[in-house]
Design a protein around this nucleic acid. Structure first.
Lengths: 235, 235
DNA sequence: TAGTGGTCTAGACCACGGA
DNA sequence: CCGTGGTCTAGACCACTAG
């Protein structure tokens, strides 16, 4: 069983939505019909549909049926951009300074975030990123050795996302970010050139490839006077 | 069958996480153990656990077990939720205190955000919102008189989104948020009960109806120790 | 090897919506 | 009333992790 049946069903329905064979508001076949079509049990059909509902592709009405939602593309008004790409969009020139670059064993926290076994090797890299010469963010990256066999400082000074997509030919899928506000400690104030205790955005980021594996875990601090997040959310 | 068994299981686990009987990284009982504990089938246990995984309370490792995730009040961006709805998801009780409630003429900024003519009437409302008695956010709402003809303090003490959808029968579409970090000023520190200059999240929010009209403009300050944003982004 | 979560079956009864 | 999705059962085999 290479690919589970429920994923096949999911993918077929996603494809039909993508190709507009299924459009917003249209009713899809009932669970019993899909069960026959795919020759699986109803619970398997439900597993596929549940995932599509959770991901926002479909919605259900008890007693009526299952319907196609607004397309995902509409929801992804803002995609996942790297810092380099974001700054390019605003015509600002990015420079990166690598403050440290080491290979170490993953701590428990890092191993959990990167789905590694404890003590597997990870790169730990500290980087200060500036836009038009102004330091905007200080970040610590954790990257699994397993994926980045031959990482160099040169790559880190340029763009990691470009390297992954163009050189390693891997496909980035999505990220989960947590955004908090904290007061700058000594390290942060030093690297960002701001007074101690100034409010900064503290963001941790976990990014995943198409195959479901995480390839980076990043903790970062953004200067509040230089950066803010804009977010769209749909009801 | 008033409350489905899987919801009972979900709620018990959520409660234990809330009361710190289950903490980050701890393993919860296996599906077979839970099946015995609750006297249900394994599929029912899995339905409960799947929901908790989707909502970010738990995570699984094949062959190892199911574990408790970090908790802090989190915003999971799988849609636009009101504060009330978010807190319900976390099993927390919301109380709202209205600090001021006035009808005034829109300033230039507010008129622009709400697509009003200058000097059109808007409600200006200050509100402190608490979860389980702890003040979490202080916000100032601007609502156009044109849409909310008969707004009362009572409505504001309860849930505005519910009022809009259930009473006014209008349909909320999407919001644009800007997220920044700032140091708490005197007003904010007083209302949230935190020291002056503590970092807080400063969020401004513009929310739109299905017909394209904005119905609220909100500026708010969230306690950093009680709240963070979680955001998914797709490439 | 034993235990865990992942997938799947072939049934069942229920609550809701519409004709 | 019938068809829909919602809940639930009592099994089964698989893949992964650990000792």
């Amino acid at each position: 069983m290479r690919v589970p049946s429920y994923q096949l069903i999911e993918n077929e329905i996603k494809e039909k939505i993508k190709k507009s064979e299924l459009k917003h508001g249209m009713k899809i076949p009932s669970e019993n019909e899909l069960k026959e079509t795919y020759g699986v049990s109803r619970m398997t059909v439900r597993q596929a549909l549940n995932n599509l509902v959770n991901d926002g592709f479909l919605y259900r009405h008890k007693g009526k049926g299952t319907f196609v939602n607004h397309t995902k593309m509409e929801k992804r008004i803002q995609g996942l951009l790297s810092f380099t790409e974001e700054m390019q969009l605003m015509n600002r020139k990015v420079t990166n300074k690598v403050a440290s670059f080491t290979l170490m064993q993953a701590s428990e926290e890092v191993a959990a975030k990167l789905f590694l076994n404890k003590n597997e090797e990870v790169y730990r890299i500290e980087r200060i990123r500036s836009a038009d010469g102004i330091p905007v963010l200080y970040e610590t990256l954790f990257l699994p050795r397993r994926i980045f066999k031959d990482l160099t400082e040169q790559i880190i000074r340029e763009s990691l996302y470009t390297y992954i997509e163009k050189e390693l030919k891997m496909s980035i899928n999505f990220s989960i970010q947590s955004i908090e506000a904290v007061n700058a400690d000594e390290t942060v104030s030093k690297y960002l050139g701001i007074p101690l205790n100034n409010a900064v955005l503290h963001i941790t980021l976990n990014t995943f490839l198409d195959n479901g594996h995480p390839f980076e875990y990043v903790t970062s601090y953004y200067r509040a006077d230089q950066y803010r997040f804009i977010q769209h959310a749909f009801r």
